[in-house]
Amino acid sequence: MPRRTATMLASLLMLIALLCAGLLIPVPYSEMSPGPTYNTLGSHEGECVLQISGQKGCETTGGHLNMTTVRVTGSEYKMNLVEAVYGWLAHDEVVVPHSTLYPDDKTADEVNQENAEEFTQSQESAKVAALRQLGKKVKAHVIVARVERDKPAQGKLHAGDVIKEVDGSPVRSAEDVAKLITKHKPGEKVVFTVVPAKDAAAAEKQNKEATRRESVTVTTEKAKEDGRAIVGIGPGVDYTFPLKIDIKLADVGGPSAGLMFALGIVDRLSPGDLTGGKFIAGTGTIDDMGTVGPIGGIQMKTIGARKAGAEYFLTPQENCAAAAADKPGGLTLVKVHTLDGAMKALKQIRAGDTAALPKCAKG
Rank of each mutant, 00 (worst) to 15 (best):
T220Y: 09
V190Y: 01
E188M: 00
V194Q: 01
D246Q: 10
V190N: 00
V231D: 00
S173D: 07
S215K: 13
I233Q: 03
H184N: 11
T193F: 07
R213C: 10
D199E: 15
V194A: 03
D167C: 10
A210Q: 05
V162S: 01
E225N: 12
V177T: 11
A202N: 13
T219F: 03
I245K: 00
P235Y: 05
V195W: 06
I247Q: 04
H158S: 13
P170M: 09
G232F: 08
A200C: 11
P170L: 05
L243F: 05
K179H: 15
P170K: 07
I163A: 03
V194T: 01
V177D: 01
V177N: 06
P235L: 05
K244G: 02
T219D: 02
P170H: 08
T193K: 03
G232S: 10
S215W: 03
G227V: 02
K222S: 15
K208R: 15
S169A: 13
D226W: 04
D238V: 06
A223N: 15
V218G: 02
A223V: 10
A223D: 15
V191W: 08
G187H: 07
A197T: 04
Q206W: 10
A223K: 12
K224I: 07
S169W: 05
G234T: 15
K224A: 13
E204Y: 12
K183I: 09
T182S: 10
I247H: 04
L243V: 02
K205S: 12
G232H: 01
Q206F: 10
K198A: 13
K164G: 13
D161H: 02
F241A: 06
L157R: 00
Y239K: 09
T240M: 13
A178W: 06
V231E: 06
V195G: 08
V195I: 13
L180P: 01
R228L: 12
G227L: 05
V191S: 11
K185D: 11
F241K: 01
R212P: 02
E188K: 03
E214N: 09
T211F: 08
K189N: 11
G234Q: 14
T219N: 03
D167Q: 10
V191G: 12
A174T: 08
L157H: 02
G168D: 07
A174Q: 12
V162P: 00
T217K: 07
D226C: 08
K244L: 10
A203S: 05
